[in-house]
Nucleic acid binder design. Structure first.
Lengths: 156, 156
DNA sequence: CCTAATCCCATTGACGCCCATGATATCCCA
DNA sequence: TGGGATATCATGGGCGTCAATGGGATTAGG
């Protein structure tokens, strides 16, 4: 399955196009739909993105929440109606729709930040600020990751 | 599974390249991605490195945490955006990006220090200082290590 | 018919690929 | 056991290629 790590800052040209980092494109090469799926984060001023397979797994996950329950309603309403399919052009760029740009407050440049199974698009400065906060919180709350396997590792 | 021990000091050339010690490369020979994954250590002025399988297992671990939870957000934000994939060139070297060099205060040379399942890259003098401190602490606090047996534990 | 999106091509600068060198360690055989 | 031959590794540098970017042309769509 696709892996997204690292951060790349690319320019948004006057037509509203951005190059998707070649590394990320390579991670999506297997996919039938050549492009990305993006939706505004309901928590952050960022866009959450991945390949279509990830969107499918999200949908899959929501089916495990009771239909007609408030949780189900909230989640599916927050996630899916504003999600967009953004196909690559010949050079591996996407067009960022107005609504998405506005949500992430994008102007000149866009930062593509890997998040493991998916990635996010940020206004570069906002990303830096957010990362700093997140690191702080992770340290304060002593977040750890239990690793699988015979030995345990903790890294905060 | 890959094993990294011993320390090797190699030169950083003017293009920012360093040879990864042949021993470490050999430990990663099985991997589909020929290169290493590196990210700035949270506590130390060093880079923590391993093969892609290690990063995959990290990602795997984060998928066991609820998506959109604060815990998930903090962890993935602290780990993945600053991690870099560094592929080997034909001679087994990697390019150290500016950001990583800055974090580890690397200039002329880089010390590759095995840490068991992963390894670290240090400014050689800083590594010496750190090792001395660590040895001292280990002795002072009488660190012990439970060996593998019926139940696993990590000592704190 | 006008706007907007897609396609296509050109530029450029970084970095990946290749070869050459020297230094070490290893091996082989006398 | 010594000494030379050889392989391996770390290092340096030149060159080609590809990724990111910009702009013009063509098509679609309202």
């Amino acid at each position: 399955m696709a892996v997204f790590i690292d951060t790349f800052v690319n320019k948004i040209d006057r037509k509203g196009r951005v190059s998707v980092p070649a590394t990320f494109r390579a991670a999506l090469a297997e996919q039938p739909f050549q492009g990305i799926v993006a939706f505004p984060s309901f928590q952050l001023h960022a866009l959450q993105c991945a390949g279509m397979d990830w969107m499918q797994s999200l949908i899959e996950s929501t089916t495990r929440v009771d239909l007609f329950s408030p949780e189900h309603d909230d989640l599916t309403a927050a996630l899916f109606p504003d999600a967009k399919q953004l196909p690559f052009d010949g050079e591996g760029r996407i067009m960022l729709p107005e609504a998405l740009c506005a949500h992430a407050r994008l102007t000149e440049t866009a930062a593509f930040a890997g998040r493991g199974r998916y990635f996010e698009i940020w206004e570069p400065q906002a990303l830096e600020a957010y990362k700093a906060e997140a690191r702080q919180r992770a340290a304060d709350k002593q977040r750890t990751l239990r690793q699988q396997g015979p030995d345990q590792g903790s890294n905060r």
